[in-house]
């Protein structure tokens, strides 16, 4: 588990990352509630966007390793690329899941109205993995972390708007709402609506299932690029 251990260490190695991975999510607990929208307080509505950004921040470790030739060096070592990738992703997952727990249960401790916090935690965990898979697929097509991050910011903004995380979907034309179904952020938004409305468990499983389907697809896309 060397790669896992050092991946955690590298993730917290600079001040920006340290702030981003610890204090930044805590701040979201204190965001106010909206009057009519969103169904959860703003911090929880936007937390999905945070997960998307943190995922790319974490996975750039893999991009840097590839660009600098570390992956090439590891290809000669007695460790498979799959093992290297899995250990890195496991470390990133641990960080993301801990953030989800801090935000959800921190909110519970502070008395924030989260309706069904355990289900919310489950939803955030599912979306964390989806974010990680999207970020992995995204970095697999870039050689420079700067360009990968800059273009990703635009993509995330688009995903957040069209998925209904930044503004209510109802204000969009019908055609756009139909297209929104294609975005993982839409399903996160649906999940949060379900938590507030207390729908059937089947619906919640469907929402999480779609998120996991995205996770698998993007994970496959992202893990195919190896050394060159």
């Amino acid at each position: 588990m060397t790669v896992f251990k050092f991946s955690l260490k590298r993730s917290f190695s600079n001040k920006t990352n340290l702030l981003l991975l610890t204090l930044f999510p805590i701040a979201f607990i204190f965001f106010p509630e909206g009057e009519y929208w969103p169904v959860l307080p703003y911090g929880y509505q936007y937390f999905g966007i945070v997960l998307l950004f943190i995922s790319i921040r974490l996975t750039t470790i893999i991009l840097v390793d590839r660009a600098k030739g570390v992956v090439k060096r590891l290809a000669v070592a007695p460790i498979s690329y799959g093992s290297y990738l899995c250990q890195n992703l496991l470390a990133f997952s641990v960080i993301l899941v801990m953030q989800c727990a801090i935000v959800v249960y921190g909110g519970v401790l502070l008395g924030v109205e989260l309706y069904q916090p355990h289900w919310l935690m489950l939803l955030y965990v599912s979306f964390s993995f989806t974010s990680l898979a999207i970020a992995l697929a995204w970095i697999s097509i870039f050689r420079s972390k700067e360009s990968a991050f800059l273009i990703y910011m635009s993509l995330v903004t688009l995903l957040a708007i069209l998925g209904g995380l930044l503004m209510p979907l109802q204000i969009f034309p019908e055609a756009l709402i139909r297209i929104a179904v294609l975005f993982p952020t839409y399903w996160l938004n649906q999940g949060m609506s379900w938590i507030a409305s207390e729908g059937s468990v089947g619906d919640f499983i469907l929402i999480n299932g779609v998120l996991w389907l995205y996770t698998i697809i993007f994970m496959i896309l992202g893990s195919t690029r190896k050394i060159h």
Binding site: S13, K68, G69, V70, K72, R73
Partner: peptide, 11 residues
């Protein structure tokens, strides 16, 4: 020993 310097700058 790779041609590029393949070390971790953050470690």
């Amino acid at each position: 020993v790779t041609q590029e310097i393949t070390i971790f700058e953050e470690l």
